[in-house]
Structure formats: C-alpha cells, structure tokens
Design a protein around this nucleic acid. Structure first.
Length: 466
RNA sequence: GCGCCCGUAGCUCAGUUGGAUAGAGCAGCGGUCUUCUAAACCGCAGGUCGCAGGUUCGAGUCCUGCCGGGCGCGCCA
C-alpha cells in the first residue's frame, strides 16, 4: 500500500464508524482488486521466483509443488519488480496474461495456488497497516473482485433476460440514453468483451446485486476517487433498469479528490516512486517523538513512544480527513505530518489538558461532576463552550447524511478552540465557589468526553498526557 | 463535442438545504508562563470570494453565459 490508498481507507473507516455510532448496521466491504492483470503478473512472478528457469507454467508436476516455504517479505518491492518485468519483457507479459486466463477459467490448480499465496501475503500486508493506523477493517470484511467471478456470466444472462443486452462489434453491453460518449452518441456500457472476458462494470454489477439482495443493504456507499464518478453513475443506472436494485435502496458514490504529487502531477498508482504508507507512518511517528522529547522531556521513554505513535498516526489521518474530500490532495510531508494548528494533536492536547485537571483535582471519576451539578454559564467563554457542546449531535447527523468527515473535524476544532478560550479565562480547580468549581469540572468532563468520542469516530486515539 | 468537479488572504484550505462586518492554519509583525500542560492564548496586518449578468429583502452559496484548471466518456480498473 502506498499513499494513494490512504484516502479511501481512512475516509471509509471514519464514515463506517460514524454510521455505526448512530445505530446503523454497517457492513464493511473491502472490495480489493485481487483478480485483474496485476494479480496475474504477481502470480507469475511468484512462480518465476520458485523456478527461474521455467519456460512452461502449468505442468502436472508443478501443480504438486510445495508452496509452503514461499513468502513475500515486501509486497511493494515485489510488485515493482513484477511490473518492471511486465513492461520490459514481452515473454513475461504473455505468461502473466496466460496465468490470468488459467486463473479465471479455473482449469489449472497451480495458478490458483500461486494466486492464493500472493493474495494472502498481500492481505496480510494490508492488515499490518490497518492495525497500525487503527483502521477497523479485518479479513472478514474482504470481499474482492475474485469473489464475484462465478456470478459474472449470470449478470450478463440476466441483463439479456430483461432485454437490456445488446451486441456491438462482438462485445456485449447496455446502451444508455442517459449518457453520451465522445461522439455524442448514447453510451455503451460493455459487460463482456469480444474475447469473452468480463470487465469491472460486470464485477460492480455483481457486487451491487450481492449487496442489495444478499446483504439486504438499504444504503450503499462507494468510497472511491472522483474519476470513477461517471462509471458508477452508469453502473447504478444499469442496475436500476435491470431490477438488480430497487428504488428504495440508496446508491451513493462518495467521491474524493486525487492524491497529487509535487507540482500537482497525478500520483501514479502502480508505478515506482510512490511513498509507501508504512514509511509515511514511521516518519510521522519519528517527528512526533522528537516533539515529545522537546516539549515534555521528563516523561518516561515508554510513555513517550506511546504518545508519539498516537500523535503521529493521528496527524496523518487528520490531515486527510479534515480536508473536504472533493478537493484534490497535494501530497506534502510537511502538511501531512504537521502538528500545529488545525491538526489532531491540537484536539489531543486539549484532551490531555482536561485530564490533567482531573488528576490535579484528585479525581479521575468522570461521573463525579456531571450528574449532580448545575451548569453555570456566566462567563462568555463558558457560554461559548456550552453552545459548542450542544452542537455535537447535529454535527454527527450532518456528517452521516453528507458523508463528510471534515465537518466533524471542523466541529472538533471549534470545540477544542472554545475549550482553550475557557481554559485561559476560567480557573477550574481554583474557582471562587464550590458550585462554580463543580460546574466547570462538569464542562471539562463533557468536553473531554466529546473530544474523545469525536476523535474516535475519526479513528484517532487520545492519550492522558502529552 | 458531451458530462462531472474546481477557481475564496502571499501559501494550504473551511464556508452543503442563501441570512448580519467572508473564517482558520501556515508564513510576517507585536504581546502573554509566581496560578489547572506555552504542542497554548491574545492582538496587528492581509481578500474586487475567476469575470459578467440574473433571481432575491438578502448571493461565496441558487440560475445563465464566458475565462482558467482538473478529471472522465464501448472492449484497463
């Protein structure tokens, strides 16, 4: 995984958390690309590692080959090498495509075994990143392109059954009056190539039907980059017309802007020169660690490392989530790893400050103050903070309705800002009266709870001190 | 050609059912630690909201046209 995979992973995770929190039954679907050309080349490359001299691929003896020792240390390097060979070596490319054909037809067991091995390694790699980033996806959520392989002929047959299917120049597809092509003619959505192969529109239709019929989803969200907007608009239209999805089911593409490189050039996926996600996370944690050393040198080392991890990872995720997802995202180390201003550490810092008050006040029991206290809002800063606190529910509602995590980020930033103002102006532990002290402690408690909950919904952790 | 997205301060961006003097961060300048964490706070400076019309009591927001940028459009995903 590289930085180009960051957005869909993080945005999808945050939206799933928010919808979950609101009581919806959320079914995560990790639609991994485990069935295309790239997996053919990976599987064949894996094979060539086992036996570099091999010029033939699918003999019986080779099917017996023991694959148990096969392991891939670094899937990213592995892919780059395979890609280089694919581009430079016609023989390798031809064999890769052959592997894919064998794979999809299910004729030979060897490609299947290799494919499975490569896929497992790849998914394990993803899971390591998910765990470090605090993304809730698990292996159970993986339902990739390969899962729909057997449904593809049926999708085409069903389109034919309802009279939508047309043949043109040997390819089969659906004409849509709602869209036009380059020549201003109605669009043609191809579901089966002239050579009999299927395309991603076919897979997406199969997936759509699975989600509507089998999973009984009533709202289906597609978190992908905005370039696929038209593709999904067309696939949704076909699915409706074919009766795969009823009108009651909401189909929503949740598009986000591209990851751009320096100079606003597109970040090429599947090319060399991209920044690895693991490296990005490590760099973020390193930067956070040196900041902890600087700001709070007396903390024990173990605690510093924990803080660096939470702050660094949080900063990376927040940098992405806080921007309106429609905008293109210009990759910048400084911006992504920034720990100043409107960043996760700002909120984490506000939280840590509040927790510090409770430690100093010798009470860590949250419920001590909220239930029995009258809230006093005499100071402007108190009033401002209280109003912000009350806006939390409507904010979450808006985030869920519009699928905009940055709205939650904006809210939390305002909340943390309101607290900072309160903190500067309103002494808590040394408030004039017991009643005022109790009231302010309650405000602190409610703020801490809201910040922690809000960050949690974004997939970002909090720490007790920093 | 058609379609979608975008154009807001020097830079990066908020501003989504139209509502009062358009906000924030960074960068710049100047202040604030004898009191709960200064990873903070306060102040100053900085904008013809791409342009031109229109709707409205009211437009960054809605409509039309234009300029500029990005992306997409029958056998890749």
């Amino acid at each position: 995984m590289h930085v180009g995979h960051l957005r869909s992973t993080i945005i999808g995770d945050a939206l799933a958390r928010v919808l979950d929190f609101l009581g919806h039954r959320v079914i995560r679907q990790n639609h991994v690309g485990d069935w295309g050309t790239q997996f053919g080349m990976l599987a064949y490359y894996a094979f060539s590692l086992i036996d570099p001299a091999a010029h033939h691929v699918f003999s019986r003896e080779e099917e017996q080959m023991n694959l148990s020792n096969f392991s891939i240390q670094d899937m990213e390097k592995f892919y780059i090498k395979a890609k280089q060979l694919y581009d430079s070596n016609p023989e390798f490319a031809a064999k890769s495509r052959q592997v894919l054909v064998e794979l999809q037809s299910g004729k030979s067991r060897l490609p299947k075994l290799l494919w499975k091995e490569v896929r497992d390694q790849s998914l394990e790699h993803c899971e390591r990143i998910y765990r470090r980033m605090g993304v809730l996806l698990t292996r159970d959520d993986v339902r990739g392109e390969s899962a729909y392989n057997d449904d593809l002929p049926e999708v085409v047959a069903d389109l034919d059954k309802v009279g939508l299917l047309t043949e043109s120049q040997g390819a089969r597809g659906v004409y849509l009056d709602e869209f036009t092509n380059k020549d201003n003619e109605r669009a043609f959505v191809i579901v089966q190539k002239s050579d009999g192969g299927y395309l991603y529109a076919t897979t997406d239709l199969a997936a759509l039907r699975y989600r509507a019929v089998e999973l009984k989803a009533d709202r289906i969200l597609y978190v992908t980059d905005s370039r696929q907007a038209q593709h999904f608009a067309m696939v949704f239209t076909v699915a409706r017309k074919a009766g795969f999805v009823s009108e009651k089911v909401s189909l929503e593409h949740v598009p986000f802007g591209m990851m751009l490189g320096p100079g606003r050039t597109p970040f090429k996926t599947r090319e060399g020169g991209t920044v690895k996600l693991m490296d990005l996370l490590a760099e973020a944690v390193t930067r956070a660690h040196s900041l902890v050393d600087e700001k709070n040198p007396d903390l024990p080392d173990g605690q510093k490392e924990r803080i660096a991890e939470v702050v660094g990872i949080g900063a990376v995720k927040y940098a992405d989530l806080s921007q309106n997802r429609a905008s293109d995202y210009v990759f910048s180390w400084d911006k992504m790893l920034s720990l100043e201003g409107n960043t996760a550490p700002y909120m984490q810092y506000a939280y840590a400050r509040i927790r510090s008050i409770f430690r100093k006040g010798e009470s860590t029991d949250y419920t001590d103050y909220t239930d029995s206290s009258e809230i006093v809002l005499d100071h402007a800063a108190e009033r401002k903070l209280a109003i912000k606190l009350l806006q939390f529910p409507e904010t979450i509602g808006a985030v869920a309705a519009e699928c905009l995590p940055n709205v939650l980020c904006g809210y939390l930033y305002e909340l943390a800002g309101a607290f900072m103002g309160f903190y500067e102006n309103c002494p808590v532990l040394q408030a004039g009266t017991d009643a005022l002290r109790a009231s302010r402690l309650a405000l602190c408690e409610l703020t801490a709870r809201t910040i922690r909950r809000g960050l949690d919904l974004l997939g970002i952790e909090t720490i007790e001190r920093m």
